[in-house]
Design a protein around this nucleic acid. Structure first.
Length: 645
RNA sequence: GUGCCUGUAGCUCAGCUGGAUAGAGCGUUGGACUCCGGAUCCAAAGGUCGGAGGUUCGAAUCCUCUCAGGCACGCCA
C-alpha cells in the first residue's frame, strides 16, 4: 500500500503540475470515510481552489480527465464539495498484497539506533510503572528492527545511587546483616528489598542524624571500599538478575547493561567535564545561591541555571547523564570495558566493567538515540540534549529523542486492594502515584502471577485435554499478551490509573482477544489440512495461482472482503506512523480493529463448509493474508502467538 | 509564579500535521446459525467534543481568552 500510494502520488503530481503549480506538501492521499465513496481520497482540489479563487468542485471536475489510465486505479470520480476519489483495481491490488507478504517496504534511515529503556534502580522489585516503560521501549525496538534499523537496547543500571545506598543501609545498619547473610534471605530477594527499602526510607526520615552514616556508605561505595562496596555490588547484581527474569516473562531483553559504577570508575564525567569547560558550555558560578558550582544556563530561560557540579566538586545526575549521552553517540572519546552477564539462547547480554577484558562487540556510537523515560524528567532530558548542542553537536542533539510517557498511578480501588492506608492529605485524590519509597505499588511479578492464574483457569476450562506443561505455557503467553496490550493501548500522554479489574480483563479490547483471533485463524488452516486435504503444498499452489476471481464474489461478500483486505494492507503505514509519532497505541488500535473486522468476516463466511470452490479459495487466501499480517503485527507488539488457548 | 500536558458517551479511552455522518471497549438492554472455537458475533440506548470568541469552503483538531485537573521547575536521582 505504501508503494502504491507513493507511485500514485508521484504520477498524479506530475500530471497535475502540467496545468497548475502544486506543492508536494499540499498533496495527500487519505482513506475515504466509507467504501461506496471509493478507496482513496484526494483533497488537493481544495488547496488549488483557494489559490485560484474558484469552486473546489469545479476544479476537481476539470482535472478529472487526468486520472484515466493510472496504474492500479480502475476509475476516479469527483465527490462531495471537491474530493477526487479513486477506485482501485481490486484483483491487482490483492495479488500484489499477497505477493508482498513477508517483505517490508520500509527501510532504515540511521546508521545505528540506541534505545535506552527499563532503567530500574537495582534496589527493589520492578513495578507496573517499569512495565509500561519496558513495553514501550521494547515495542519501539521491535518496530525499528522490522523497519530494518540496526538497534542496540541498553538498560542503564544506577548501581551506585542513593536508592541502592538506602537498601545497603537497611541491610547493614538496621538488620545488622553481613554479605554472607544475604544468601540466607529466604523469600524472593527483590520482594525482600522492596519491603526493606520502604522500611529504611521511613527510618531515615524519622532519624535525620543517620544521614551522616548514609553519606559515608555512599562515599565508600563510590570509592569501592568494603564492606559497603561489596554489599552494594551483591545487592544490585542480585536485583538486576531478578529484573531480567521479570522482563523475560514479557519477552523483553537487552544487548547491554551500562552501569553507573563504570561511568564513575572510567572517569567518563571527567572527560565530559573537560569538554564542557573547553567549549565554555558550563560556567563556574561566582555569586548568588549557586556560588561555587559549575552551572549550565538554559537557552530559553536565561535567568535559570542548572547545577552540574556541586560546590563540593561532586557531579550531579544530569552531569553523568550528559557524559553517558556523549558516549552513546561516540563523542566522548572514551569507552567501557565489557563482560558477559547472562545468556539468552544464543544471545549474550553484556555488562560494562572498569577492568580490561577480552574482546566484546562494539557498543555505542549511534546516530540516533531514544531515551525511554517518563515525562516528569522532560526538563532534565532537555538539559542533556542542550549539553550536546552547546558542545557543537547539533545533529546529535536533534537525534536525542526523549521518548516520554505519562506515569502509571493507582486508583482508589487498587489502593484498597493493596491494603494501603491512605493518609489525610491523600484522601481526596482520584489517584496516587506509585512510590518505591513508600513501598506503594503493584509489583510486576505479582501482576503477571495474577494474570497467569486467571489465564490458567480459563485454559483448564476450555482445553482440559492438554498436558499441564502446555496449559501452563499457554497461560504464560496469554498473561504476557494481556499485559503488553494493556500497556500499549493507551496513548503515551495518557496517565494510566491502574485498576486490577481492567488490567486483568481478557475480553473486548485486550491482548487475549487479539491472540484468540489469531488462534482461530490458525485453527481454520489446521482443519483445512486435516479435513479437506488442503495442506501447505496446496496452499502455496493456490497463492501462486492467479487470484483474479474477485468478480465472482456476491455483492455483499465482495464488499466485506474488500473492507477487510484494504484495511489490513495499511499495516506498514501504521507501523511507520507509530514509529514516527512514538505512539504505539496506533499500532495497537489498528491491530484490534483488524481483529474485529476479521472476526466479523469469519462469522459471516464459512470456509470449510463452502461448497463453491471459487468462493472457498478466495476466502482461504483472504484469511491467509490476514493471518500473516496479524502474525507480524502481534510480534511487533511482543504479544505471543499461542497455538491454542 | 513560570513552563509542559490533559479535559470527547455512565466509566476507561481512540480520533488532534483541519476534511465527508465524532468512534471503540467496558457497563446496560435485547438477540445469534444443526456453526471453521461463544475469550466470539449482531443490534439498541447513550455526545452542548470543559466554556466563550476567532481563523475558513470546512474546526474535536489551528489561534486567543477562560474554567478545571495533573506534572515539572533541588548543590535528589
Amino acid at each position: 500500500m505504501i508503494k502504491l500510494k507513493d507511485a500514485l502520488k508521484k504520477e498524479i503530481l506530475a500530471r497535475v503540475k502540467e496545468r497548475h503549480t502544486l506543492d508536494e506538501t499540499e498533496f495527500e492521499i487519505t482513506a475515504t470515510p466509507q467504501q461506496s465513496f471509493g478507496d482513496l481520497s484526494l483533497t488537493f482540489p481544495f488547496k488549488l481552489a483557494k489559490r485560484l479563487r474558484a469552486n473546489p468542485r469545479q476544479v476537481a471536475q476539470d482535472l478529472l480527465p487526468l486520472f484515466s489510465g493510472l496504474e492500479g486505479v480502475k476509475t476516479a470520480e469527483v465527490a462531495g464539495p471537491g474530493y477526487i476519489n479513486l477506485f482501485l483495481d481490486r484483483d491487482a491490488f490483492f495479488r500484489t498484497a499477497l505477493g508482498s507478504l513477508g517483505r517490508t517496504s520500509l527501510y532504515p534511515e540511521y546508521h545505528k539506533v540506541i534505545i535506552e529503556h527499563t532503567n530500574i534502580n537495582p534496589n527493589k522489585a520492578a513495578h507496573i510503572g517499569h512495565l509500561r516503560n519496558a513495553c514501550l521501549g521494547d515495542t519501539l525496538a521491535r518496530c525499528l528492527r522490522h523497519k530494518g534499523e540496526k538497534v542496540e537496547v541498553q538498560n542503564y543500571i544506577d548501581d551506585t545511587g542513593v536508592q541502592v545506598v538506602d537498601v545497603v543501609f537497611g541491610f547493614m545498619d538496621l538488620e545488622r546483616k553481613t554479605l554472607a547473610d544475604l544468601d540466607s534471605v529466604g523469600q524472593k530477594f527483590d520482594y525482600y528489598c522492596w519491603d526493606l527499602y520502604a522500611r529504611t526510607a521511613a527510618y531515615l526520615e524519622a532519624h535525620p542524624e543517620s544521614q551522616i552514616r548514609k553519606a559515608e556508605i555512599l562515599k565508600n561505595i563510590e570509592h569501592g571500599r568494603d564492606p559497603e562496596a561489596g554489599m552494594s555490588q551483591a545487592v544490585s547484581r542480585r536485583i538486576i538478575r531478578a529484573h531480567l527474569k521479570t522482563m523475560e516473562r514479557i519477552d523483553v531483553g537487552y544487548e547491554l547493561l551500562p552501569c553507573e559504577s563504570s561511568i564513575l570508575g572510567l572517569k567518563f564525567w571527567e572527560k565530559a567535564f573537560a569538554l564542557l569547560k573547553e567549549k565554555d558550555a558550563i560556567q563556574l558560578s561566582r555569586e548568588g545561591e549557586n556560588a561555587g558550582c559549575w552551572v549550565m544556563r538554559l537557552a530559553d530561560a536565561k535567568e535559570k541555571e542548572k547545577v552540574i557540579v556541586r560546590s563540593d566538586g561532586t557531579v550531579t545526575y544530569v552531569g553523568k547523564d550528559i557524559a553517558y549521552q556523549l558516549w552513546k553517540f561516540g563523542l566522548l572519546g572514551r569507552d567501557f570495558f565489557y563482560e558477559p552477564f547472562a545468556r539468552n539462547g544464543a544471545k549474550t547480554l553484556w555488562i560494562t566493567t572498569t577492568e580490561r577484558r577480552p574482546a566484546a562487540p562494539a557498543f555505542g556510537s549511534a546516530s540516533r538515540v531514544y531515551n525511554v523515560i517518563d515525562s516528569r524528567q522532560a526538563y532534565l532530558q532537555k538539559i542533556v540534549a542542550q549539553g550536546l548542542r552547546v558542545l557543537g553537536f547539533e545533529a546529535q542533539a536533534a537525534n536525542s529523542i526523549h521518548f516520554f510517557y505519562e506515569m502509571v498511578a493507582l486508583s482508589p480501588r487498587s489502593l484498597k486492594e493493596l491494603n494501603y492506608e491512605v493518609s489525610e492529605n491523600e484522601k481526596d485524590r482520584s489517584f496516587l502515584e506509585v512510590s518505591g519509597r513508600k513501598g506503594l505499588g503493584v509489583k510486576a511479578d505479582d501482576l503477571l502471577d495474577r494474570l497467569e492464574t486467571k489465564a490458567l483457569a480459563e485454559v483448564e476450562k476450555r482445553n482440559p485435554e492438554l498436558s499441564p506443561e502446555l496449559r501452563a505455557s499457554i497461560s504464560r503467553a496469554i498473561a504476557c499478551g494481556a499485559l503488553r496490550y494493556f500497556m500499549l493501548k493507551f496513548a503515551r500522554n495518557s496517565l494510566i490509573v491502574f485498576d486490577f479489574e481492567e488490567a486483568l480483563s481478557f475480553e473486548g479490547e485486550t491482548g487475549p482477544y487479539l491472540q484468540y483471533t489469531f488462534v482461530r485463524l490458525n485453527s481454520i488452516f489446521q482443519k483445512l489440512s486435516d479435513r479437506a486435504g488442503v495442506g501447505n503444498a496446496e496452499l502455496e499452489k493456490l497463492l501462486r495461482e492467479d487470484p483474479t476471481l474477485l468478480d465472482r464474489l456476491p455483492e455483499n461478500e465482495g464488499r466485506d472482503f474488500w473492507d477487510l483486505v484494504l484495511y489490513a494492507a495499511q499495516f506498514e503505514e501504521h507501523v511507520l506512523h507509530s514509529v514516527y509519532s512514538l505512539e504505539f497505541s496506533h499500532l495497537a488500535k489498528f491491530t484490534f480493529n483488524l481483529c474485529q473486522k476479521t472476526n466479523a468476516y469469519y462469522h459471516l463466511y464459512s470456509i470449510l463448509g463452502e461448497g463453491n470452490l471459487d468462493l472457498r479459495n478466495i476466502r482461504i487466501m483472504t484469511v491467509f493474508y490476514i493471518r500473516e499480517i496479524l502474525r507480524t503485527a502481534l510480534s511487533l507488539m511482543g504479544i505471543p502467538l499461542p497455538e491454542k488457548m
